[in-house]
Nucleic acid binder design. Sequence first.
DNA 1: CGCATTTGACCAGCGC
DNA 2: GCGCTGGTCAAATGCG
Length: 159
Amino acid sequence: MCAIVHSFRINGVKMSGDNPKPPHSPESDFSKQWPSELSQYLNFDDDQWSYDDLDSFVSGHAFSHKTEAIEVDDGDEHEKNEVKDRVAFKTKSEIEIMDDGFKWRKYGKKMVKNSPNPRNYYRCSVEGCSVKKVVERDKDDPRYVITTYVGTHTHPSYS
DNA sequence: CGCATTTGACCAGCGC
DNA sequence: GCGCTGGTCAAATGCG
């Protein structure tokens, strides 16, 4: 389930060890602050990040104690024209629906075989932007929510 | 009234 | 080829 992690791009700036980091969110405002920052982590770049780099990155900044990255798929084996970036986060949260700065419209719900919990499918409602996200509750730890982002936003976040 | 959500149907890929 | 499974569609419904 885990794969290679590539580097991130934040507001068009490629993230590396010495690039500036986004401001840290106070713990009190965690539930409202982190999604808008998470939305900026969705763009990949060429250079690779190892799992540990990502883990230390998120744990030292926006997600700190509450979130751990569990999967990133680079899809370099695909020879197709479109490369779909995919990032999954496991987040400790009581609610699945959060405003992360983008307008999401739910288009599907599915019961998966492996888990007793439903899986929800969302799509970015901005015209011309086909970013999808999948939200699913962890079957082992129902306190956790697995959010998977697929694709790259072609527009700035609204509001 | 315009938009989001809901929910079963539909479809495509894959394994047997 | 058939059936299972995951992903998407779309009509009906709900809501501000």
